[in-house]
């Protein structure tokens, strides 16, 4: 489906901004989200394409407003709930 992630060729986004000497992660929690995802895929809780799909299913406005690893965390918690690993209440913010 033409989802919010499918931005190739879309007109109107601004100039590309580079961050000098950018660190791999901008906060400790980002590193944890990154590693958590790898661990959950390795454990077979979900696969990489289900993970991509879960990011794409986000509300479009929330998707665009979220940072890269905020999207990852949303996808992780969405899938954990859908797969019955934890309840939304347990995963809630």
């Amino acid at each position: 489906m033409s989802r919010i992630n499918d931005v190739g060729g879309v007109v109107g986004f601004p100039a590309v901004v580079q961050e000098p000497d950018e660190p791999p992660f901008h906060a400790d929690w980002e590193a944890h989200v990154f590693a958590l995802n790898g661990a959950l895929i390795k454990a077979g809780v979900y696969n990489l394409d289900e993970f991509r799909d879960a990011q794409e299913r986000m509300d479009p406005q929330a998707h665009l407003a979220a940072s890269y690893y905020e999207r990852w965390f949303t996808a992780i918690t969405t899938l954990l709930a859908e797969k019955g690993v934890a309840t939304p209440a347990e995963l809630g913010g």
Partner: peptide, 12 residues
């Protein structure tokens, strides 16, 4: 880098 993952780069 973040710019590689940005909508700005990917779209344009």
């Amino acid at each position: 880098p973040s710019w590689y993952k940005s909508e700005a780069y990917r779209s344009r």
